[in-house]
């Protein structure tokens, strides 16, 4: 992909309802060549709009090294000074569809959510999360993000500015300008940091595990209690719910299944294989059939071999 070829092909400034915003990528010592990245921007239009939707822009093809700082600085200093409140990146989303990213949260434990029903405190969500191991996340190539601005006007302004910059046809906007020093470095430092963070202090880990375990047992107790209640009290129609008691767990079910299979086998064994004459006959017939089939198979295999390798001929 020689750079000389590029001007020949006209680059679109808009595509569908996206603005294709060219970003200049400064040259690096290891890659001394300027390149252009294309960021696609449009107003956020999720299927299920929320209150904040008017303040949001939907970004496609976000650079892999993008951070909230990058996006903030991009709009603040190079695209009309629109102020970004927060950015949600694709990989960090939980559960919901592609058009509705939410603020980046560490993955919640589902248990945590359930616990809320059990009447525990709201702060329980984050209980027992493992210590973070990365200082800075990177994103999948071609990924998306949702930038939430402080108000709808800023969002509009940002989009307008982006459109203007794209129309000018020149990649005047520089990616990563003004973020120097605000972020942990990439490269070996980042991997080294990850390596160090992977080994959290023992007490921190112990705390996290303990918290998790306490929450878990509390929740189990609560659930057992709820179940017991269901079992013992008739509901409003007068029925008693039949629930899974404490006994049936997966391993037991499997054991029962195994036992069943074994029983069937034993049943079969009770009458010896050569007990009835027809059994012998059928066995023999089967054997003969097997032989014929085996032969046919072999012949087919040899045929295939010949097709693959050509004629059998010493090298």
């Amino acid at each position: 992909m020689a750079p000389t070829q590029k001007p020949k092909r006209p680059v679109a400034t808009t595509v569908n309802d996206f603005v294709a915003l060219p970003l200049r990528l400064p040259a690096l010592p290891s890659y001394p060549r300027e390149a252009t990245h294309h960021l696609y921007v449009r107003a956020h239009a999720p299927k299920v709009p929320t209150a904040s939707t008017p303040r949001e822009l939907f970004l496609v093809n976000v650079p892999a090294d993008a951070t909230e700082v990058h996006i903030r600085s991009l709009f603040a200093s190079q695209l009309g000074g629109a102020r970004v409140e927060s950015v949600a990146f694709e990989g960090a989303r939980v559960g919901r569809g592609i058009t509705a990213p939410v603020a980046p949260v560490r993955r919640k434990r589902k248990r945590g959510v359930e616990e809320e029903d059990g009447g525990e405190g709201e702060g329980e969500k984050e209980v027992g999360a493992l210590p973070a191991t990365r200082e800075r996340e990177v994103h999948r190539s071609g990924g998306t993000a949702v930038a939430t601005f402080v108000d709808a006007a800023s969002a509009e302004l940002a989009l307008k500015e982006a459109r203007r910059a794209a129309k000018s046809g020149k990649a005047t906007i520089v990616w990563g300008a003004g973020v120097e020093g605000k972020l942990p470095a990439l490269g070996s430092a980042r991997y080294l940091a990850h390596h160090r963070l992977r080994f959290p202090a023992r007490h921190a880990l112990q705390e996290s595990v303990d918290a998790f375990m306490t929450a878990l047992s509390a929740q189990e107790v609560a659930r057992a209690r709820a179940l017991a209640r269901l079992r013992s009290q008739p509901d409003e129609d007068g029925f008693i719910t039949v629930g899974r008691g404490g006994k049936g767990d997966a391993a037991r079910e499997e054991a029962a299944k195994l036992k069943g299979e074994e029983l069937a086998k034993r049943q079969k064994k009770m009458i010896g294989e050569d007990f009835y004459r027809f059994q012998v006959r059928e066995r023999k017939k089967d054997e003969a059939k097997d032989l014929v089939r085996g032969f046919e198979e072999d012949r087919r295999k040899v045929e295939e071999l010949r097709k693959r390798r050509g004629k059998a001929r010493p090298e």
């Binding site: 892999a64 990439l186 070996s188 991997y191």
Partner: peptide
């Protein structure tokens, strides 16, 4: 509008990610 892979852009991105690892 066709989408073409931005090879230069990706290489520049890799260069940023790699930082001091890449000579």
């Amino acid at each position: 509008v066709n989408a073409e892979i931005n090879k230069e852009g990706i290489l520049a991105e890799i260069a940023r990610l790699g930082g001091d690892l890449i000579t």
